[in-house]
């Protein structure tokens, strides 16, 4: 793995993977965590249906996401004017679609525990719904960070959708996972294996971070 540490092509691939996945997770957290908190504190008609849909979307096949996004972004698609196909932005969008239901569902589970603990106290303060959401998001911050890291792990390992909308273009949209697919098909097993080991190492770091956070929570 170390022999590639000076290979600019290798570094570029690793950095793009991190950039795309971190941005996707960041945007996804901004959407999913407040939405999860809203689902926890507010009872409204259709809430159960939304929860069932989120749980269903957790198992969304990435290649299907890639295909739908490709059709939207391609020349005849309704979003073709934005010229996003085969760009890192398209890959970020694909990852957001894949991980948002996962982070939302995990965050809802975590925040329900916090809300059951603080609900009466917040009601006694006559807090508004926004204030309740702000409070449980802050009180559940360590659990939410763990959920975000779980989303990052999922995003980093994703290949099906980003290879379709990113195109696996060298120096532009090649990530570790799409790079592994290409190098394996070309018989360049050494490069593919090194990308795989790097991915495994980053996954290990994420899992160590999740584990440490969980321990500190306890």
């Amino acid at each position: 793995m170390f022999e590639y540490l000076t290979d600019m092509n290798y570094i570029e691939i690793v950095l793009l993977s991190l950039e795309v996945s971190l941005l996707a997770v960041f945007i996804s957290c901004l959407i999913s965590m407040p939405f999860a908190a809203f689902l926890v504190i507010k009872q409204f008609p259709g809430r159960q249906l939304i929860i069932v849909m989120i749980n269903t979307l957790m198992g969304l096949p990435p290649v299907v996401v890639g295909l739908f996004l490709y059709l939207l972004l391609s020349a005849n698609g309704s979003l073709s004017a934005y010229k996003l196909l085969y760009t890192p932005s398209a890959m970020v969008i694909a990852q957001i679609i894949i991980i948002t239901p996962i982070i939302t569902a995990l965050s809802k589970e975590s925040l329900e525990i916090f809300y059951s603990h603080y609900e009466d106290y917040l009601t006694s303060l006559r807090s508004s719904n926004i204030q309740k959401i702000q409070t449980i998001l802050w009180e559940g911050r360590y659990s939410l960070l763990t959920n975000g890291l779980a989303g990052l792990g999922r995003a980093m390992s994703e290949v099906g959708a980003i290879i379709i909308v990113g195109g696996n273009i060298e120096h532009l949209t090649r990530t570790m996972t799409t790079g592994i697919v290409l190098e394996t098909s070309r018989g360049e097993f050494s490069f593919a294996l090194n990308l795989g080991l790097t991915l495994l190492f980053i996954s290990l770091l994420i899992n160590v971070a999740v584990h440490t956070l969980r321990k500190s929570e306890e």
Binding site: H117, Y118, L122, L125, R126, S127, S128, Q131, T135, E139
Partner: peptide, 21 residues
């Protein structure tokens, strides 16, 4: 006692900032 995961000052500040009164 129901305490928020912050210091005592933070708990009192939260009550002052997040109440409807």
């Amino acid at each position: 006692p129901v305490m928020l995961d912050r210091n005592v000052n933070g708990n009192l500040l939260h009550a002052l900032a997040y109440n409807g009164n």
